[in-house]
Every structure is written in C-alpha cells, then in structure tokens.
Simulated assay, not measured.
Amino acid sequence: ALEKKVVKSKVGEKVSLPCCHEIPSSEGLHKYRVYWQKNITDVVLAYSEGNMISKHERYQNRTQMDPWNLTLWISPMEILDNGSYQCVVQRNSVVVCDESVILFVTADFSKPNVTAEVSTDTCEWTEMVITCSSHGGFPKPKISGALNNMSVEWNASWVSESNHSPYNVTGKLVLNVTKDINITCSVEYNGFAKSTTLLLKKKNDCVAPPVPRPYNVITASIIIVITFILAITLAARYLPRHVCSRCCKRQDSVEEGVKDFTKAPVSDKGTAETSSV
C-alpha cells in the first residue's frame, strides 16, 4: 500500500491538498466526476460535468479546486479541518484514482508563563513550587523542562472542550533551591515548541551556626573528668579531718564527765567525816 501523503498547516493559513490525477490539456473537467471527501463520510465538494454539485456548509467560502490538477485549496484553516481527505476521480463512471492525504492542523500555544512561589525558606535551602502554563494551542502538547540544562519532569494537566478544541496546559514542579539556578519550561506540539526560562533565586542568605569540631568535644570531656577527680580528692581530704575533730571534742567531754563523777564521792566523804566530828 502506498504511504499516505501528509500536509501540515497552521490555523489561519491557506493550504493546498494535492489530488492523485491531473486532467490532460486535451480534455476538460466536463468529462470527469471529482469528489473531495473528509473522513470518507463528509463531502467537502463535488464536481460533475464541469459543474459543482455539492459543497459542505463548513467549507462555504473557504474552498477552491484547481480545474486541471484538482488540488483542493482551503483558507483560512481551522482546527476542525484537521483529518484525512480523499480525492476520488471518475471518467465515464470508471474510477481513475482514489487516494488520501492527511492534513495536520496546528494552533500555536502562547509563550509559557513560568512563576515561582516560595513554600518553605531555611538557611540551607528554599522550597519553591514552580508553575508553567500555556494556552490556546492544538494539538495536545507535551510539556518538558530543564534545570541548569538537566532534564526535569513536570506534573502536567490538560484542559480542552473536545478532541478538536484548543488546549490549555499547566505543569507544576516542587524544587529545593540551594543556589541561584535557571528553570526552563517548553511546550512542544506537532513539531513546534515554545520555551520560557526563569531565574530562581535562593531567598534566605543567613549563615548557619558552625558545627563544633570533634576535638572541642574531647577537650570539654577531659575538663569535666579532671574537675570531677579534683572534687573527689578535696572531699576525701576534708571529710576525715572534720570527723576526727568532732570525735576528739566528744572524747574530751566524756573525760571531763568522768572526772566530775569521780570527784563527787570524795566531797561527800569529807562532809561525812566533818559531821561525825
């Protein structure tokens, strides 16, 4: 099977769809029947014996056919014109040719609008929600991106009223930005692309507190241990003296009590002797 011819055009342009037969100069259109059909079922226009016998209402005032090479002209292009067209030529009720041509209609998307919203900001990084949006294009696009020339994947969503209506596309991306970087958003459609680049700046430039070095921790630990040992040593020296001093005082008090007790009977005896005299 022969490959189908492909024609590309944009909305608003004028396009020509070639037919598979060219009428010889010795003959004329009046000897032929020519049908231009879309998707087999819709007759765009038809000629018989040199006269137009049918024309689709959607193509009123937008189509013409060359009377010799039977090329179909459509202008201005619309998204609904997208599809497969078929040229059928008959002569004396015999099919001379019957071939199709594919028409791809493209509508340009708007230049992508890229915005950045800060969701979290710290000394180390800034979390940003990046949004890329474009509208009014056809067909359904692909959205891609690059972060400092490194490919990134967007979380994309599309909105369209139908398969033959303009598309709006939105992509979102969450990034932790540690330094100033460039983010690029590209909208690709039917061999075309539109891009926008945005510089993302880290918001907070505060300086993080220095992390203590290991030897500082070791030094502090040694000082604590030495202090603890000194405290124990001083306590060991002080407590025995204090206890001994209290013991000595208590012993002296006991001895004095014993002496007093010993002296008391002697005094009584002397008193008794005196009384007896």
Rank of each mutant, 00 (worst) to 15 (best):
N92F: 01
I181T: 11
C87T: 07
V105P: 01
S186V: 06
D98Y: 05
V88E: 09
V114Y: 04
T196Y: 05
Q86D: 12
P166V: 07
A193N: 08
Q90H: 15
D180A: 10
P141E: 08
S133T: 04
D205F: 12
I130R: 02
K201A: 07
K194I: 14
A107G: 10
S119L: 15
L175T: 00
P166Q: 09
S134Y: 02
A208F: 14
I181G: 05
Q90W: 09
S151I: 05
N190E: 15
P209S: 10
I181P: 03
S110Y: 06
E124N: 14
G145H: 00
G191K: 09
D180T: 14
V101D: 10
N176Q: 14
E153L: 04
V177G: 01
T120F: 09
T170M: 13
S186I: 01
S93I: 02
N168H: 11
N155T: 12
V152A: 00
W158V: 13
V89E: 03
Q86L: 13
E117N: 05
K201M: 10
L175H: 08
T115Y: 03
S100P: 10
P112W: 00
V101P: 08
I143C: 05
I183V: 01
V211K: 13
S186K: 04
Q90R: 11
S93L: 07
D180P: 04
I183W: 02
V187T: 08
D180M: 06
T106R: 14
T120H: 14
S93E: 06
S134I: 07
W154H: 07
L147D: 03
L173G: 01
W154E: 01
T120G: 04
Q90N: 06
D180I: 03
E161H: 00
V207W: 03
S119E: 15
V169A: 06
W158N: 13
N204W: 12
K140S: 10
K172L: 06
L147N: 01
V207L: 15
S100K: 11
I130P: 00
N204R: 13
A107F: 11
C123N: 14
N148L: 06
G137M: 12
K142Y: 09
P139V: 02
P139C: 06
S144P: 03
G137K: 07
S110H: 14
N163R: 03
H135S: 15
L103M: 03
S186R: 04
T196E: 14
P141N: 04
P139T: 10
C87N: 11
T184F: 00
D108F: 10
D98S: 12
